[in-house]
Every structure is written in C-alpha cells, then in structure tokens.
Nucleic acid binder design. Structure first.
Lengths: 340, 340
DNA sequence: TTGTATGCGTTATCAT
DNA sequence: ATGATAACGCATACAA
C-alpha cells in the first residue's frame, strides 16, 4: 500500500476506493495510529492553532471570552493556545513571539498594547489577528468591543435617577482603550447630567481590586465625598466594597456603586453588584469568527463589531439621600431588574 | 554561509566562530528571522509544549494552579496548551487526543477521569503525565495533591470547638478522588468527634454553586437542620450563601459554613468565608516539576507530593448557640485568623 | 571551525 | 484509483 493512498484514505479525500479506505481506517485504529499535527503543520504551513493573549487569566471575565472563542475554534478544528501577560509588556512581547514561532494561524488579543516597535513588527508581518475588548491606536483593523458609551450612559442615568449628583469615577488604565472610552463618556456626562465637576472625583486606577480600595479611601478622604462611585470594572467595584466595609460604610445606604463587566460573582446575593453587562461569550465568538475569515484570506463582511451592553440593577445602588439612616440593611429585592 | 552554521550560531552551539556567530545573529534580527518551532518539533521529536487539562477553566482556583505550572514551564522554555473539558468525558478524551496529536511533551491533568479505555490507551502509550489535585484509580504514578485529611480535620475541629455537633456535609463528585478523600475523613470524624450520625447530613453534590444551593435547601428542609455546613469547595459554599440569603438565614449567626480551596473571592469582606487553604501555585509548580523530570526520562526523587493545607478562619463560622439572636450582623473581625 | 547530506511525518504533485 | 517522489524548515551526524 502506498503512503499517499493512506494519507488520502485518512483525510477523507475522494481519490480512494471504499474497500481500501475501510481497510486503512481499520488498521489505523488497530495500531492506534494518530497523524502528527506538527508534521502536518510543517507541510501545510498551517497549524490549526490560534493564540489567545490576555493580560490576566485570573480575571473572572476571561473564561467567558475564551468560551466564545472556543466555540468557533472547535467548529474550525482549531486549538487554542492561551497565554497571559500579567499586564507586563515584556511578557506580552515574549508571548507573542512564542505564538509566532509556533506558527499559529492567527491570534486574538484581549491584552492592551501601545505602539511598541516589537509588536508593530510582529503584527505587521502578515499574521492575522483581531483585537478583543481593547483597541489599539495603530492596529484596529479588526476589533470586537462593547458599547461602552451606552453602558456608561445607562449607569450614570441610573445614578442620576436616584438623586446622585456627586459621582466618583474610577478610570481604568490609560493603555486600555475601553477604559478611555468610558472616561470620555463620563466627562461628557458631567455637564449633560449636571454632575459635580470636581476633578478630584476622577481617580486614576487600574482594573484591580486593590485599585478600587485605594479609590474609595481617596474619595472618602475628600471634604465632600461622592455619594456614588462608578468603577472601571467589577473587580474594581469589589475593591470598593472591601474598603467601604473597613470604614464601616454600607452599600448602597451610604454609597452607591456600579461596576462594569458583570462577572459571575456580581450576581451572588452577598455581592449583588449593579453593573453593566457585557455579552462576553458572544464577543469572544465574534472575535474568533472575524479571525477565521481573516485566516482564510476572505474579506470580512464587517471588521468592527460593537456588542450591546445593558445595565443590570442589583443591590449596590440606591437613593442618594439614604445616607442618613445609619447603615441598616434595607430589604433585599427579590429579583434583579434590568434597564437599557 | 552554510545552513548548519547558521543553525549552530543561533542555537548557541560552540562549533562556531565568534565573528560568524555575531554576523549571523545580526542578520537574523535584521531580517526578522524566527526559527519555526514546528519544524524544530518535527525534527527533535519534542515540541516544548505541555498540555494542561482542566474540567473547568472558569473555576477561580484554576488560575493559581496554572500560575505554578507556568512558572516552571517558562524556566524550561515550554509553552502551555490549556484545555478545558467542561467536565464532559467525551470532551476530555477529544482534548487529550488533540494534545497527543500535537505531540506535547507531557500533560498535567487537573481533570478527573475513571478507567475509560480511550484514556487508558492514550496515557498508556508512553506519554508523560502527572495528576494534579485529582487522582485516578488506575494511573496515579505521579500525583500532586493536598493534605485533605488534615484540612478536613482542622475544619471539623473548628466547628466542634464552636459547639457544632450536627454538621451537614456536601460531598463532591464521586469521580473526584479529592472529594472522596474528604468524605472518608468526614465519615471518620462522625464517631471521632461525636457528631450526629444522620445519613441525611451527607448531600451528594458536585463542585458547583448550584449544588451548594441545592444542598442548603435540602438540609434546611430536614426536621432537624444542621447548625453548620462543610462544603466540598468554595464555589459550593458560595451557593450555600446564596440559598441561605434567599431563606433569610444569616451566616454565621444561624448557620456556620466552611469551604475548601480558598479562592480569591473568599477573602472579600462581603464573603469572608472560613475555608481550607490550598497552596495552589506551589502545587502547580510541583506538578510541573514532576512532569519535567518525567519528560527528561529521569527517575523523579518523589512521585507523589502532598501539599500542606491550613484552615483560614474568617467570618462564616461562629458558635452553634448563636442561632437565636435574630440574624443581626455581629461585629466584623478586623483581621483573619489562622489555625492549623 | 565550516560545509554537506539525510531524515523527522506529513501533504501535494505528478505519473501510472 | 493507486503509487512514486518532492518539499515543508529545522537539527544532526559526518566529511572537509
């Protein structure tokens, strides 16, 4: 039996007789034969692997994104190579290099980056890639993000409806385009909703819980503390929760808090965080879908997709005037409510 | 210039003149040349990649394990291929096959499995692997786990010290060796500590939050509900929290709860879960270390490592008699305490 | 120290 | 429908 016939039989090509095919397939399983993906990759110049780069694999929002990517990767017979950068630019470059060396077919970047020359070079070399959740100044050909403007506006509106005018805003890291978009919307909201225009009410944070705690302490040390805090993401909001507890401040009685992302923990009864929901799985899938068309060399129908967001109202927000009642837990609402 | 000289120059072999080496290296970076890991893998019969299989990438305990594995993988110039099985045996087999096809040098299995013939076959074929956190009946040559017995005993002791005698136990899935170990210790504890020997006090759950909620509802529907619950892991305990809140029961006033794993959320002020801490990062590192010696064909010094556990006492446990006081939040303790 | 030749396990091209 | 052969990009054994 010839080598090429075996190859054809196994890969389901049509140039082979049914009898031969069956015999080949049979002996293949009998011998436990499995074709080498690495030899195939070398020959085909295609690895059927796609790299996924995130700056924090421990972020509770991450798994949902991956899930979406995985959904379409599976359909396309591709494997995921998950890498995390720890937010370190050097690690990011190293990881991207590794991914490149392994000749992944493309990559999904959930990790921010600016115009580092190494990255420019890596991405400029024809490697298909799509940006998820973070956009870059230089490369944003293919981008999947969320409607931050709508989400932020809904959140601010919600606070304003509850009588808040003095709102502390924690902005995310400057490298994150998403964070910057939200900041821009917040700044527009100040005049639009008649909020207090105190520059002390914008705290430069990152996406961590620690940063949320620091923000709360800073805000509360102000002569006139805010009555509500808009966090840069849910982790951040959790940090606010913790620091508030340390100071004996009750949420939402003394202080309202809104997050961003809607990570699984947010819906726990103990947390009940009002937050802006992102369709993370859908976003991941959209990103992967985009990447796949790129890999196949087709021109994608759309190159930027902005996923809808929605405000999920739980129990971390309340009326601004409630600050006087001494922190007695109010009645838990039976169900979550939603707002657009 | 000859091909082999270039190869030697780049891979740092000594058979090359300093002048040549420099020139080669220089032109390599100038041209943006990167050696193909796939060609290298084919030639060397070694991919410098190790597979990591977990049943739930979304489990908050997962990142810490991965971190540990990553630590040593990085040192050994190896890349991680992360896969999740969703707890589905078919997916697990498929993923293992993929990993095998990609010719990973070895794999770390954080995912349980029983004696499926496909898995037997895959693992029997000389592929190095080590079991992390879950042990198998058939293959447990190399295993890294935690001292479940000590952890469980400390937890039960803590509850007994607080006057609890009627303790509900949520056992994890039967496929999880870790869960079974804990169950065994619990069973031994019943006579040892003089606990109520009611079979209704053992709830068959899995590791999910849902299962924790179901357990609480079952327990509380009992004629004589337990005064404390020992959960199979932290997620489980969080489920208990949620369901308890629904029923208007306060923790720890009406009910004490202990988890297992010590995931990051557990230390949030809002959660403050008393739990058994696992040195997850260390465990991951130990597993990877073990795997590496296997890959190199050396006989490992130790083949099973049992990591120490410790009880972290937070605010989900209290005296058994406190159930009468109507669920008024008691004063939060300023710091966590620890116990062995 | 440098150059040459061979093979790793596939797929693709061509001839039969 | 099947068989022979080249090539993918690297590492290595051996010759120079």
């Amino acid at each position: 039996l010839a080598l090429s016939t075996v190859s054809n039989a196994l890969s389901g090509k049509n140039y082979v007789g049914d009898a031969t095919r069956l015999k080949v397939q049979d002996t293949a399983v009998r011998l436990g034969y499995r074709p080498s993906a690495v030899a195939r990759a070398l020959r085909m110049q295609r690895s059927f692997a796609i790299g996924v780069l995130a700056n924090d694999i421990a972020n509770p929002a991450f798994p949902a994104f991956v899930r979406g990517i995985e959904d379409v990767a599976l359909r396309e017979n591709s494997t995921l190579l998950l890498c995390n950068t720890d937010g370190l630019i050097d690690r990011q470059i190293a990881q991207m290099r590794t991914l490149h060396d392994r000749r992944v077919d493309g990559m999904v970047l959930i990790s921010q980056f600016s115009g580092e020359p190494e990255i420019r070079e890596l991405l400029g070399g024809g490697m298909p890639f799509v940006l998820l959740q973070r956009r870059s100044d230089i490369f944003d050909d293919d981008y999947v993000g969320a409607d931050n403007a709508a989400g932020m506006t809904a959140a601010i509106q919600h606070l304003v409806d509850h009588g808040h005018r003095r709102i502390g805003f924690i902005r995310g890291p400057a490298e994150s385009s998403t964070a910057m978009e939200r900041l821009a919307v917040f700044r527009e909201s100040v005049p639009a909703f008649g909020l207090d225009a105190d520059p002390d009410l914008v705290f430069p944070g990152d996406y961590s819980t620690e940063s949320g705690g620091a923000a709360l302490r800073r805000f509360m040390a102000l002569r006139r503390p805010p009555t509500a805090i808009m966090a840069s993401n849910d982790l951040n909001a959790l940090g606010v929760f913790d620091a508030a507890a340390e100071q004996g401040r009750s949420i939402p009685e003394d202080l309202s808090v809104i997050g961003f992302d809607d990570i699984p923990i947010a819906s726990l009864a103990r947390i009940a965080l009002t937050t802006v929901h992102l369709p993370k799985r859908d976003m991941g899938a959209a990103a992967a879908e985009l990447l796949m068309t790129r890999i196949k060399g087709e021109a994608p129908a759309v190159r930027r997709v902005i996923a809808p967001t929605r405000l999920v109202i739980r129990n971390s927000t309340g009326p601004a005037s409630a600050g006087r009642n001494g922190g007695r837990p109010r009645q838990r609402k039976p169900n979550e409510r939603e707002a657009t």
